[in-house]
Computed example of a mutant assay.
Amino acid sequence: MEESAASDIPAMRLFVTDDDRQDEFRPDIPSPARVYNYILGGKDHYPADRVVAENTMAALPSARHAALENRGFLRRAVRHLAAEAGVRQFLDIGTGLPSYGQVHEIVQEIAPESRIVYVDNDPVVLAHGRDMLHGVDGTAIVRHDLRDPEGILADPALRRLLDLDRPVALLLVAVLHFIADDEDPYGLVRRLVKPLPAGSHLVISHATDDGDDEVETALKDNYKTSSSAHVRTHAQVEAFFAGLELIEPGVVWTPLWRPDEASSPLRETPGRSVCWAGVARKP
């Protein structure tokens, strides 16, 4: 199906809070995935989502460009891992609503034998994801929450596809800023990375207000009905990679991580991308 240019970019991945997690479809409760779908010109959203999206864009005019830059970073990172690092297994946690240019499309174009498992806890995301992946070899989407690393790694569908004795690229793109400090985000990352073998990679992008004082207010005010946003500093984001070998150029603004020749709306003002990003290898 042909999509608009805006819907070419999937939503920044968000998780609802413990109190708001939906076990069934609830259009009356704003869904972060649907909110970003609206921001990027998609069609999978409802009135409650549109209210949050409009408020977010009013408070943070660079919201759409930030999502575009985040997507560009993800594409460059997985392309590097598949083409240059030789990684053939990818675990994308918090995948959000699917659209053109998903991880499996990028890496399987480079290496058709690659295997990709998507993880999300939103029933709408799961439904769309299963439809997207129907008949696509080497892929699966499973329902889990980032707060349950052991459950994710033990999932039978995941274990059928991924060999955890071989390197895995763990993708946590625009999702960790929805884990509160008291939920131990650093511990969650360690619990996901520890069982993976040497040669595995960790890919992270994370919202920050280091470059824009309006970001924290915009996120907290506009997502408080459906999720909790927690911006972190450059040093705090870099700490997620403790014990790993950061790949050049380290933790930088999303448009500055190994930029390619594609046009970038925020290349000259990277702080407006509101996300730090990095890739690291497990020694």
Rank of each mutant, 00 (worst) to 15 (best):
V103T: 15
P249L: 10
Q108A: 04
A33G: 09
A77F: 06
V51C: 09
T269I: 07
D8E: 13
L188Q: 10
L171R: 04
V193L: 00
E3W: 06
H177A: 10
H177V: 07
A59R: 00
W276F: 10
Q89I: 06
A48M: 11
Y36C: 08
E268M: 02
A53R: 02
L256M: 12
D92K: 01
E216K: 06
L196E: 06
A242C: 05
N37H: 11
A140E: 14
V107T: 07
A33W: 03
G42I: 11
G101A: 07
D19N: 11
R160W: 05
L188C: 05
W253L: 10
L146F: 14
S273G: 05
L188K: 12
S263C: 01
A239T: 11
G278W: 07
D145Y: 06
G96L: 07
G243A: 08
E109F: 02
H134I: 06
K43T: 15
A111T: 13
E54G: 03
W257I: 00
R115V: 06
Y118F: 12
A127S: 15
W276G: 01
T233R: 07
A198P: 06
D18S: 10
G94Q: 14
I152G: 01
H206V: 08
P123V: 06
F73M: 03
F25M: 08
G271K: 05
A229D: 02
D28R: 08
